[in-house]
Design a protein around this nucleic acid. Structure first.
Lengths: 234, 234
DNA sequence: ATTGATATTATGTACATACATAATACGTCA
DNA sequence: TGACGTATTATGTATGTACATAATATCAAT
């Protein structure tokens, strides 16, 4: 058992993580208790506790009272994806952002939208279509529905100036969201908008947004598959 | 300022999060210091510290010494994606998993693979292609390269029995990975393998795996875009 | 044997306290 | 005015202590 000089929870974290990564402890193995680790690292149990707690949050170990701490069996991988605001994504690439409103009307929501947004059948909702361009090249086509019951202010908003996404982010900053990624072939409308061929590949992100169980918006974002990639960090 | 009865860091977390979500504190606002919160919640500063620290980790607030804690401007959204092992993904759907090895040869890696895996030009690597089926229907086509310098044991492994992914997960459980998602059109080989048409949409996950800066493997996983969706939790 | 009460144990949380550290504010000196 | 050192301040971390809680182990009663 190696002994470290300093006794910071960070150092202990990396120390333990190292032993996990280099196979000193294998998946499924039980690692020593907090008390005993504290002693061998020459620090208090609380410090070891924090190190182990964070390692558990990060998925390296699993902890159970009475049983102890064991190295995770690590069956699935967790990846964090950052889903930026289009404008920032484009500007970060050094390109000029432009936004174009295509459609903005209050209509009865179709069945699939009602289902996704938990709407009563026959209820009207705000339907918005718009296009985001990078250096005048179509970058993302957005097809959105907004629940007017929970976001009535959307009715009086001029979406030819602000994109609905940025408006909503400011209006409902801390809503919950679910994202779905998929690939599909471009239909005629989307192809026209993105200036690609019908039948080209699309990378599609669908996002549903809620605030305290109340559906706020549902949006389908289409990217030209040939040029778009989404990468995880870490 | 509402006063909670119990003084647990969890309760304080939800209390503060509530005030952020319902707009009592807006993005950019500074929230009271730990000391003052501790007093108003009737607990110690350490407890408030933990609540705020976790809120910061979760992205709701940003903290800086001396300046204090402020509500995040929340410009981009973070989503966590779970990338499961194919076999488990299929079995969790209640389908029967089958695996088929298509190709397994040690050859000179092409330029793009060398670049991705940081290999010397002209170096040999292990090239594996295989297919994962759910109830005998092709589900995922896998095209993988393994760095034999860092995983020499792969040379003597019989990949007709174990899939390379599962073998690697057991061999190198805590490696780092980078994932890239994209959409493309199926080429002839992939279409044949997945029993779809050439030109159909593919959802593609590319994963590069490292262990302490050493490239281990690089894999391209292709799913029929029409049937595959990947969804985030939380 | 099965059940149920009880002891044991490892982790989980809380607190008072102390010191560390980063960033800002401020006042002095040139 | 501007540069630089110092005080101030809010967060960051560490420790000893205490009690809470969940899960297992143990043992007695039926």
């Amino acid at each position: 058992m190696t002994k470290t000089r300093t006794a910071s929870f960070q150092a202990i974290k990396t120390e333990i993580l190292g032993k996990i990564k280099n196979g000193y402890w294998n998946p499924g193995d039980i690692i020593p208790g907090e008390e005993s680790l504290a002693e061998s690292y020459g620090c208090s149990r609380v410090t070891v506790n924090r190190a182990l707690r964070e390692l558990a949050e990060e998925g390296f170990v699993e902890r159970r009272r009475k049983s102890g701490t064991r190295v995770s069996l690590n069956t699935s991988r967790d990846a964090r994806v950052q889903i930026p605001i289009v404008r920032e994504e484009i500007e970060n690439k050094g390109a000029t952002y432009r936004y174009e409103l295509i459609l903005n009307e209050e209509v009865v929501a179709p069945t699939d939208v009602c289902r996704k947004m938990n709407l009563q059948k026959g209820v009207k909702a705000l339907h918005i279509k718009c296009l985001h361009l990078a250096d005048e090249v179509p970058y993302q086509f957005e097809d959105r529905w907004i629940n007017l019951d929970h976001v009535p202010a959307a009715r009086e908003t001029d979406f030819s100036e602000v994109s609905p996404n940025e408006w909503l982010v400011r209006k409902e900053p801390f809503s919950e969201a679910e994202h779905t990624f998929s690939a599909m072939l471009a239909d005629e409308e989307t192809a026209n908008m993105l200036e690609i061929e019908k039948g080209d590949a699309l990378f599609v992100v669908e996002r549903r947004t809620w605030r305290e169980k109340n559906s706020i918006t549902s949006v389908k974002l289409s990217f030209p598959g040939a040029s778009y990639k989404m990468t995880t960090r870490g």
